[in-house]
Simulated scan of single mutants.
Amino acid sequence: MTGNRRMLVLRAVVEDYIRSHEPIGSTALARRHDLGVSSATIRNDMAALEDEGYLTQPHTSAGRIPTEKGYRYFVDRLSTVMPMSPAQRSGIAAFLSGSVSLQDTLRRAARILSSITGQVAVVASPSLSKATLRHVELVPVASMALLAVVITDTGRVAQHTIGVRRMPAPDALAALGEAVNARCGGRPLTAAADLVRTLARDPRWQGHAALCESLADAFDGMADDEMAGELYVAGASRLAYQGSPDDLAPLFDALEEQVVIMRLMSELSAEHGAAGAGVAIGSETHTPGLMHASVVAGGYGNASETGDGTTDAGDGATASPVAFVGSIGPTHMDYAATIAAVRAVARYLTATVAAGGADTAEG
């Protein structure tokens, strides 16, 4: 029973510290929480929690604050994450529904998440490596150059210039485009590349084999380019009000390292699928600049691996996100509220991606 009560004391300390950002004493804890024991007993429990590494005493005051281990215990036992209110959800939808493109939606998503949490918000555009081909258009742009305009299922638009020795006649080029779309539509870009190479061996397209090979190489290049997705960041200035100057400089440096942030948030979101949110606290981020910060990230997009290697947004197989949305703040962040906000924005973005990015192109 003592161990259970001790953990209730830990939970109370974390909740009060998140709210006040001041060291918590046993007398204040006994007054605010119905723990059923005296402040002296609570003081003994807090001392035991300190010995076990869950709490620490920052200076000579009687108050204590949670350690990284204490926060981890608290986060792992968040029994319920209170959903956002209908008013908050409608506010998110209203703000994002005014978007004119997928880019604009993602930029707005970062801004609204930062506004809700008071922290840094990071939103990644869907990775081309996880996208499937919706449509490709082959457009002559010079006497010996074509532009392959690739539109994916997530609404992303990518462009690739292809050099040609001899420009196909307009009818032949249109027919080739139709053949590529018929054969490759709904396929991941790597699979589409393989299928286009089979076209190069088809007698009907023998005269355009080099073009087919170049288009296949373009698909492969897009699929391999993990960094083709853009990162939208909002709210960095809010950090100035939430941390000590000594903590802020390395944190701003970490935010500049977008590859590091993308890898961290991608791993967190992938671990929990497109329905949940992962949390990394301090040293768990394995990032020096985030030693005094926590990261909450969730995936959006619900891409599912199907039996033939393609992806869809259905309920058949295990869903994996096509991109992530996340929040970075101090270790004393309101974890429950941040997780709820990340999930709410991720759900909206999942719906947007399912609609093909609102059928809009990126600028």
Rank of each mutant, 00 (worst) to 15 (best):
A240D: 01
H286C: 11
I328F: 00
P170D: 12
T318C: 07
L96S: 08
P321V: 07
G276W: 13
A275S: 04
I328G: 10
D308L: 11
M265N: 12
P203W: 02
A346W: 14
Q119T: 04
Y300L: 00
R31E: 11
R32S: 04
R238I: 00
G289T: 04
D312W: 10
G314D: 01
R107M: 13
T27E: 09
A109W: 07
A12M: 00
Y300E: 01
S20K: 10
G309S: 03
S125Y: 09
R89H: 02
G309W: 08
A280H: 07
S129N: 08
D76N: 12
G3I: 11
D104L: 09
I24M: 09
L8A: 12
E213K: 10
G36T: 08
M265Y: 03
A182P: 01
V322Y: 06
A280T: 09
T60D: 12
L147D: 14
H272F: 15
V345M: 03
S97Q: 10
M291F: 03
L215N: 08
N181K: 04
E267T: 13
S99I: 11
I328Q: 07
T154I: 06
L349Y: 06
T350Y: 07
E230P: 00
S115V: 01
I42F: 01
G357T: 04
T80A: 15
T132D: 05
A145M: 11
N302I: 06
G282S: 14
R43F: 00
T41D: 03
A182M: 03
G63T: 13
R11H: 05
S327F: 09
S26F: 03
